[in-house]
Each structure stands twice: as structure tokens, then as C-alpha cells.
Design a protein around this nucleic acid. Structure first.
Length: 962
DNA sequence: TTGAGTGATAATTCTTTGCGTAAA
DNA sequence: GTTTACGCTTTGAATTATCACTCA
């Protein structure tokens, strides 16, 4: 609480007022607003809050500490609410008297206390006693418009959000692939074909398919299949598709999938396309969309779904986790009312049924009655501002769309004659309908955009892409939204999604179990979504294998002539199955498609390979080119802010201080009077020193293109240095140069084995380019000692800086020497290293021997003690010892020094004689036994020069002969 | 409704060239 | 006595990014 002034004032000081706990609690309470960092705190709270801690409260500490705190919390709340101090005190008194009334607030407060982290607080006045009044005065006057407390996301929040985003993306990718695979189901395809009227089967015979040819098919499909909210039953995708096929109703996802299956059954090269409506990349990024109503404390009861429940309320792919989610506007409303009341939830079932036939909120006009039923549902229960607003807007939208329908019926909307759909008098795409509705009037348009948009429903989420070889010269992927009966209107998808407040961040096309990002095709304003997408390197790496599969699959999906059809394939093809199902003759000369391109290739074998791969490469690369072209020819944004981080364009206004336009042109256009330049004209400037690090130096004749004023701190430092030295204070500016003013770094050569050094006697090795010619950088520890020993000139290599204690210290790594000495030094270093290692090894061995000796000595001592003092015990336990007693073999090896030291410890002064057996374990076992090392029992190893002496008791000693 | 402008805050960038002490 | 390795102690100003809010 930076902008607040805390004062504590004594009031009625009486002994034994507040307990220690109370004091702490008040301190905590005072410090608590600091806990969540909030912006605009100064406007957040009331101007003056008084904490009146009455004697009753003080006495209350006898009950328990928590009650005290709770009471004070309540007191604060009351004060904040404008109640008088006395009133608050009265309330507190009542609470104290009536234990029952205290219970509820208590439990709430207690929960709150448990959930929050309390900080230790301190009360400035050390004489703080119970009957005191704590007054917090805020400097600022109360703001009539309260600023919302804003919690700025921390780095941790952002990281978490990114992880969630990525995981969600992967899940949705998986979901898309599942749906795509389900679309290849021969049985589903066959069933769809069996339903198709004969005249529509001709489409499969067209060699040059165009988007126009698809209209009758889409029309038939839309007439026969409707979107509805799914049941709560959780079934597999295949079962859901089968059910949708049977009932001719399904979720938008299922209907879109069926359309894809139908197209594939007809032999059309088709992809299943989905908007991956993932959780936001930024923390609370979806808040604006989901927390549209400022519900305050009722935020968890709001009818607007929250992020975590996102998939419940929208028809987004996120519902993929539970495919049976409901996705119509009415359903959403119903669901929201369900949240408010369980009873309502049961009642609304019927309303849900009635609203089941809502294909899309954009075609509400067709289902006016059911919408009304839905609205009735909404109107029930405790209404809040958002619900009422939604209801009103829905009503307006419905009435407006009904008017449009009436107009259509009356033939007033004859404009459809001029559009590509003119051959379909009854066909009006929902987008057009919406456009018409929007043009009807401000009220109705507002109703549509806000009511539907705020609920994020009606957005196109799934559609198909059909490859039309007759489009353009090279063929084209045509957008076909069978759910909303929209064909070849890819440029409108973004607007349609935006109208439903759904951002078009990822659009992915699935085919043959692969996937390809086709967002560029549908997104006209890339700059708006670029920052909302995950790191492109990660995304590309995820998609790379899928893209390859998809490419192979769609390239494999080509028309097969009759004579190519293998008999075995014929058995599997959906048409064949359809023949059985339909009992009608299917045109034999129609083209076919297998369950996937890959499978077709497999089945059809060699015949298809050559031609398809050629087509494939070109088709895939052509599409890549198309998407790339779109990326490079994005229209100029109309708002200035977009140019700050735009990948293609820039305006001078938004360049940072280290950037400049060079060359200044060409001017691509203007935005609010500012010239727009290509981003490629933006050059980064650096100081001479910085360029030096990259192995570049400024040309002799070049002047700085920009001069920046040095920062205050640096300037102060600089001026201090200048005063001490030369007194030249000309370095008040930072001189910046562009890349075009540079040339490769030319450092002085190493001459006569002397390394050219800087003024500090070292070489700054930012990179290999910074090394003076004729020198080499040896990044080895302690290599300088070698160079020093060999008396070779060298310079410490400074490779960077590290920060410690607020200061920067240079980091050195190895040395820089003349190249001709490199090998000599390395050789010497290697020898030095070997010597060092040998010493290390020797030291380790010595240590090991010493420890072994200590161990054996301790065992021997233990054994001797046992023999002497615990014979009874020994007789019982001696069987445990034989491995130690009889098999011990002390090997003495190593250098003479080692041996000497060992022997010294053993107390043996005779180097060439074996150890006296008195300390050996077996000797200790048999007190009277003396080891006898007979010559015939000795063995000598010529290689190791070790003589092994053995006693008949089993004891042996190895001795190195000198 | 959209976008420019502004203010507040968090995050990031930039700065830049030991010293004392203990162990070897 | 000399050399070498290691830890000290958590900078701070400037800039940029982001967000919320107001206003046109």
C-alpha cells in the first residue's frame, strides 16, 4: 500500500484491551492488501477506513483468536461500506452476544483465512492496546469510477499458461486426427453413399471439379443433416458418427465429419479442417471472453463459462475431451441456468430437446419456437445483469432474423440471384443471412453480434477442404462448410469467427492421419493472431512429421480410372458396400477413394506411384507457395499499434532507439499519415564496441548515423573518469552505427611470438572473429602455467562478464598464444596433465592402501580381543570369521616410498622381510601359531616382481622385491 | 465499436574489467 | 611464502512490453 499513510491513534486506552494475537491480526489485516500486487491500488479502496476495535472485541479474544480476526474483518467491511464506526461496533457487539449469527460469517472468513497467505504485519505504535482505533488514511480522493484491481501475470503464470496452451494444442491435434480417421471409415462412407440421390453421384465423375459443382451436394447435405446438441452419453467417435448418420443429427463436429466422409466416399480429395480453439497462451487471456460479466463475488456462478469449463459451453474443439458436450446457444443458456439451479437443470431437459434441432445460432430464424423455449429457460431463476441482457439480445436477434426469413419468403431478398448460389434459390449461407440481419438495423445487429458473440457460439469450427482441380489453373483447396452451407468463402471465416469472439489462431487440416497448418488461408490479419500463437519453431517441429504424412495422403488421393481398380480393392471400397446397402446400381465409372490416400496407394500399388508423386509434390508445394504468398502479401494494417511488431511492415514512429530506416523506402502506403515501410528497411544500430564483439569494425570514414544521450549513471561515471584523466567531456553521447557502415575486423598481427594485447594486457575473445591473426585461443584450465613454464608469451582470454554483488566482473577462459606455439603448449599441457593424473592416481592408491591397512588392523584387534576376553562368545561366532581369518592376503605394492610408509605403519623395519606374523589374523586365532614361510611355498611373479610367501595355515604375504 | 493516447507496472536489457580468504 | 581457487551477495537504471482505461 505504497500510497497510503498509516496512523494509529489511541482511543480509550484501557488496560487489558487487545490481546497480542489481536494486534498481530490487525497488522496482518493492514498488510494484506499488499499481497496480490494490484494496479491502481490507490483508487481501489475507500479513502478512509477505520478499524474500531472496541472493548467487546478485545474481550472476544477470550473466545478465540480467529473470532477476533473475523470480527475485525467484518468491521472493516462495514466501514468500507459506509457504515459508521458505532454501527460497526454495534454489529460486532451483536455478533458477540449472538453466537449463532457469528457462525456463518465465521466459517466464511475462516475459509478465507485458510486459503490466503497471511503476512506478518507490524503496528507502528508499540503501545498499541485493545481499545484503539486504527485509521488508514489514503492520500487520494475517492475515484467515482473504481478501477478494477488488476493482477498482472508473473513469469510463472506465463510459463504455466504456455504449457497449458501447448498441451491443449497437442490434445486438439490428436482429436483432429481421430475425427479424420473416423471419416475414412468405409462403412460410414458407404452408408452415406447409399443415402445420396443418384444424380448427385455424378460429381465423382467430374474431371475438372469446381466449387460451383459442390453446391447441389452441400445443399442436399444441409437438408438432410442437422446440428443438434449431443446427448450426455459418452461414446466413441465412431459410435457418435454412426448415431449421427442414423438420426441425421449430430454435433457440428460430427456433421462436419460426415460431410468429409461423404466427400471422400465420392472420391473427392478432402481434408477435415478444424479451428483449434486452444486455451490462451497468456495467463487469463480468455478472461475477456469468458468473464464478460463483472460478476464480482459471483464470478464462479456466472452463466458465462470459465476457462476451465470452456469446453462445456462452446462448440469448440476443446470439447473434444468430452465429445458429447452441447454446443448450441440454447444449450449454453440452458447449461448456464443449470449452474444456477439443479432443479432448473432437470426442467430444462425438455427445452433442450426442443432446441436440439438448432443447426447453428446463425440460423435461429428457422427454429423460432424452440428458441423461444430456450429463452423461457433463461428467464427463469435469479437473473443477473448479464443474463437479462443476453435474453433481451437473443429476443431481438430472433425477431430480427425472423424478419429476414419473412423477407426471404416474400421474395424481397432477390439479391441472391446475382451470387454464385443463384442456381439455388433456397440456399443462403448463414454468413449472408447474418450480413443481411446486420444490415436490417442497429438494434438487431447489435443483438446478433453481442448476444451470440458473447456466448462464443455459432462460430465455424469444423469444415472440409475439397481439392478442386477445376479451380484456377493448378487446382485449389476449396473451403466447404457443410454445417453452415458455405462454399469457397475462406476469406469470410475469420470475420465469422470474430463475430463470435473466437480468434482464428490455429486452423489445421487433417487428412490421412496427418495434419497441416492452413491458418494463413483463413486469416487475413495475421498480425492480430501472431502474438497469440505459440513459438513457431516449436509448432513447426510438432507439425513437421504430420505435415509430411498429410502431404503424402492428400497426394495419394487421386482419381482412379476404372481399369485401375483392383478386384481386391473393390471388395473394400465403400461403393461396393453401398451397393449392397442400397440395392441400387451404382455407376461403375465413378472415381473411387480408399479409406485414406495411403491405403489407396498401398492397394493400387505401382501403378499409382509415379504419377501421384509428381502431382503430389507439385500440389503440396503449390499450396505451400500459396500460403507463403498470402503471408508476404498481407494487407497493410489500419491501426498504428499493429506496426510495432508487424513482421512485414513498419512505421518510423514505432521504431525503438536502436533502430533506423535504411534505406528510407520504398513507401508501401500510409497509416494515419505515417509512411509505411517494409520491415526489411529497419536496421539495428550498435555502438562500435558492440559491433566489435561480432567481429566487425566501423569503416574509417563513417560517421555515426544516430547519437543517443548517455544514461545519467553512465554519464556521471564517464565525466568522473574524464575529470580525473584528460578532462575531455565529449563522450556524453552514444554513437551508433549501422551494418552498412562496417567492415570485417582488422586486428594487429602477432609478430615474433608476441600476442597483441589490449590496454589491460589481455585479449577480449567475444568470438573467434575477435582473435588477432596468427593467434590461437586455448580454452584449458591452468594452461597459463604451462605457457609460463615454457616462457611463451600469452594473454589471458576474457570471454565475457558475469554479475556479482551488483558489479560486473570479467570472465577469463584459457589463454591466447601465437599459433606457432599452440602445439608445443598443448603437448606440454598433455604431459603435465598426465603427470597430474598419475600423481592423483598414486595419491588415491596410497589412500586406499592406508585405509585397507586400517581396516585389517581393526579386524585383527577385534579378533584378538575376542579371543582373549570372550572365548565363549567366540566359540559360538568363530564360524562367521573364516573369510577374514584365513583368506586375507595383504598385497604390498607400489613405489618404494609407498611401501616404506606402509611398512612403517606396520612397524616393520625390515623392508625385504615379510611382516611379523604376530599381527596377522590367523596368528591371532591361534595364539601359539607362528607363521612359517617355506621356500617351496613361495611364488615369484616375474612381471610384477612380487614374491608371494605362504604359510601352511593359509596366510600369505606378497612382497615386492627391491 | 475501434483505435489512439496515456499511465502504471512487470519484465527485460544493459551495464561492464575484484577482492579477500583459505587451501594447496 | 607464493599461487590458486572460490565465494562474496543478491545492482539498478533504462527500456520495452503489456494491460487497463479514457476519449474521440
Amino acid at each position: 500500500m505504497r500510497s497510503t499513510k498509516e496512523t494509529t491513534r489511541e482511543k480509550n486506552p484501557s488496560p487489558g484491551a487487545l490481546s497480542e494475537k489481536s494486534r498481530e491480526s490487525v497488522g496482518k489485516l493492514l498488510t494484506r492488501p499488499n499481497k496480490p500486487r494490484s494496479r491502481g491500488t490507490k483508487n481501489n479502496d475507500n479513502n478512509i477506513q477505520q478499524y474500531d476495535l472496541s472493548s467487546e472485541v478485545g474481550n472476544g479474544s477470550k473466545v478465540n483468536g480467529i473470532q477476533d480476526v473475523d470480527s475485525r474483518v467484518k468491521s472493516v467491511t462495514l466501514e468500507a461500506g459506509g457504515c459508521s464506526t458505532d454501527a460497526a461496533r454495534d454489529t460486532l457487539r451483536e455478533e458477540k452476544v449472538d453466537g449463532g449469527t457469528l457462525q456463518d460469517p465465521l466459517s466464511d472468513s475462516r475459509e478465507e483465512m485458510n486459503d490466503s497467505d497471511w503476512e506478518d504485519g507490524s503496528i507502528p505504535n508499540s503501545d498499541f492496546t485493545g481499545n484503539q482505533q486504527v485509521t488508514i488514511e489514503f492520500d487520494e480522493t475517492p475515484d467515482p469510477v473504481k478501477r478494477k484491481p488488476v493482477h498482472q501475470a508473473t513469469a510463472e503464470d506465463k510459463e504455466l499458461a504456455e504449457i497449458v496452451h501447448k498441451v491443449h494444442l497437442l490434445c486438439l491435434l490428436g482429436r483432429g486426427r481421430l475425427i479424420d480417421r473416423a471419416c475414412d471409415d468405409p462403412l460410414t462412407q458407404a452408408a452415406l453413399l447409399s443415402l445420396l440421390p443418384r444424380h448427385l453421384l455424378n460429381i465423382s465423375q467430374m474431371t475438372k471439379l469446381t466449387a460451383k459443382n459442390l453446391h447441389p451436394l452441400i445443399h442436399w447435405f444441409q437438408d438432410n443433416f442437422h446440428v443438434r446438441s449431443s446427448t450426455d452419453e459418452k461414446r466413441s467417435i465412431h459410435s457418435n458418427l454412426a448415431f449421427a448418420l442414423e438420426t441425421h443429427e449430430g454435433t457440428s463436429e460430427e456433421i462436419a465429419a460426415l460431410s468429409v466422409a461423404l466427400f471422400r466416399a465420392l472420391g473427392l480429395i478432402t481434408r477435415f479442417v478444424s479451428i483449434l480453439d486452444v486455451a490462451s497462451l497468456k495467463p487469463d487471456g480468455d478472461k475477456s471472453a469468458y468473464f464478460s460479466q463483472d460478476a464480482g463475488g459471483f464470478i464462479f456462478c456466472t452463466s458465462t463459462p470459465m476457462v476451465a469449463k470452456k469446453n462445456e459451453a462452446s462448440s469448440s474443439p476443446s470439447k473434444s475431451f468430452s465429445p458429447n458436450e452441447k454446443d448450441s446457444a440454447c444449450e449454453t443458456s440452458h447449461r448456464s441456468s443449470c449452474k444456477r439451479s439443479n432443479a432448473e437443470s432437470k426442467d430444462s431437459a425438455s427445452a433442450n430437446e426442443s432446441s436440439n434441432k438448432q443447426p447453428c445460432p446463425l440460423v435461429f430464424e428457422l427454429k423460432h419456437d424452440s428458441s423461444g423455449a430456450c429463452h423461457t429457460q433463461i428467464s427463469q431463476g435469479p437473473k443477473r445483469k448479464g443474463d437479462i441482457e443476453f435474453s433481451l439480445q437473443m429476443e431481438m436477434a430472433i425477431s430480427a432474423t425472423a424478419a429476414v426469413i419473412a423477407n426471404i419468403a416474400d421474395g424481397k431478398m432477390g439479391s441472391s440471384m446475382g451470387n454464385p448460389n443463384s442456381n439455388l434459390p433456397n440456399f443462403i449461407s448463414p454468413f449472408k443471412r447474418m450480413k443481411k440481419v446486420l444490415s436490417e438495423g442497429s438494434s438487431s445487429s447489435h443483438g446478433i453480434s453481442t448476444a451470440i458473440g458473447s456466448r462464443r457460439v455459432g462460430s465455424p469450427l469444423y469444415w472440409a477442404e475439397v481439392y478442386c482441380s477445376g479451380e484456377n489453373l493448378t487446382g485449389k483447396w476449396v473451403h466447404v462448410d457443410a454445417v453452415n452451407a458455405i462454399i469457397d468463402e475462406e476469406e469470410k471465416v475469420e470475420a465469422l469467427a470474430a463475430a463470435c469472439k473466437r480468434s482464428l489462431r490455429y486452423v489445421v487440416a487433417f487428412a490421412g492421419n496427418g495434419a497441416k497448418d492452413v491458418t494463413r488461408r483463413y486469416c487475413m490479419k495475421w498480425y492480430k493472431i501472431a502474438s497469440k500463437r505459440v513459438n513457431s519453431i516449436w509448432w513447426d517441429s510438432v507439425l513437421a512429421p504430420l505435415k509430411e504424412i498429410e502431404s503424402r495422403a492428400t497426394n495419394g488421393m487421386f482419381h482412379l480410372e476404372n481399369d485401375n481398380i483392383d478386384a481386391s480393392f473393390k471388395h473394400d471400397n465403400p461403393k461396393h458396400i453401398a451397393e449392397n446397402l442400397k440395392a441400387e446400381n451404382f455407376p461403375n465409372n465413378a472415381t473411387l477413394l480408399g479409406s485414406s490416400g495411403l491405403e489407396v496407394s498401398k492397394v493400387c500399388g505401382v501403378k499409382t506411384d509415379m504419377g501421384s508423386s509428381l502431382t503430389a509434390a507439385s500440389r503440396s508445394s503449390l499450396e505451400d507457395m500459396e500460403l507463403e504468398t498470402r503471408a508476404l502479401t498481407e494487407p497493410l494494417p489500419t491501426n498504428q499499434q499493429a506496426y510495432r511488431t508487424h513482421q512485414l511492415y513498419a512505421i518510423e514512429k514505432w521504431l525503438n532507439k536502436y533502430q533506423i530506416l535504411h534505406p528510407r523506402g520504398p513507401i508501401l502506403g500510409f497509416c494515419a499519415g505515417h509512411a509505411v515501410y517494409p520491415r526489411t528497411c529497419v536496421q539495428t544500430l550498435k555502438t562500435k564496441e558492440r559491433w566489435l564483439r561480432e567481429g566487425l569494425q566501423v569503416k574509417a570514414s563513417e560517421l555515426p548515423v544516430k547519437e543517443l544521450k548517455r544514461s545519467g549513471k553512465l554519464q556521471k561515471l564517464k565525466s568522473f573518469e574524464d575529470d580525473e584523466s584528460v578532462g575531455d567531456n565529449s563522450e556524453g553521447t552514444l554513437k551508433l552505427y549501422g551494418k552498412w557502415q562496417l567492415e570485417p575486423l582488422q586486428l594487429p598481427h602477432a609478430v615474433n611470438g608476441i600476442v597483441p594485447k589490449n590496454e589491460r594486457g589481455q585479449v577480449d575473445v567475444w568470438s573467434e572473429k575477435c582473435l588477432p591473426p596468427g593467434t590461437a585461443h586455448l580454452r584449458l584450465p591452468r594452461v597459463f602455467s604451462v605457457a609460463k613454464r615454457l616462457e611463451i608469451d600469452y594473454a589471458p582470454a576474457m570471454v565475457g562478464f558475469e554479475y556479482k554483488n551488483g558489479q560486473s566482473y570479467p570472465v577469463f577462459e584459457g589463454i591466447v598464444v601465437c599459433a606457432e606455439f599452440k602445439d608445443v603448449i598443448l603437448e606440454a599441457y598433455r604431459e603435465e596433465q598426465e603427470r597430474r593424473e598419475a600423481e592423483e592416481k598414486k595419491r588415491n592408491e596410497m589412500q586406499a592402501i592406508s585405509r585397507w591397512y586400517q581396516l585389517l588392523s581393526s579386524i585383527v584387534t577385534q579378533q584378538r580381543l575376542k579371543n582373549r576376553y570372550g572365548k565363549g562368545v567366540l566359540s559360538h561366532t568363530s564360524s562367521d570369521e573364516p573369510t577374514v581369518d584365513n583368506n586375507l592376503s595383504l598385497k604390498v605394492s607400489g613405489s618404494q616410498d609407498d611401501k616404506q610408509s606402509l611398512e612403517f605403519r606396520k612397524g616393520n623395519k625390515h623392508k625385504n622381510k615379510p611382516n611379523p606374523p604376530s599381527r596377522s589374523p590367523s596368528a591371532e586365532l591361534e595364539e601359539d601359531h607362528k607363521h612359517l614361510f617355506l621356500t617351496e611355498d613361495q611364488s615369484f611373479d616375474d612381471e610384477t616382481l612380487i614374491l608371494t610367501k605362504r604359510c601352511h595355515c593359509g596366510f600369505s604375504v606378497q612382497v615386492e622385491e627391491l
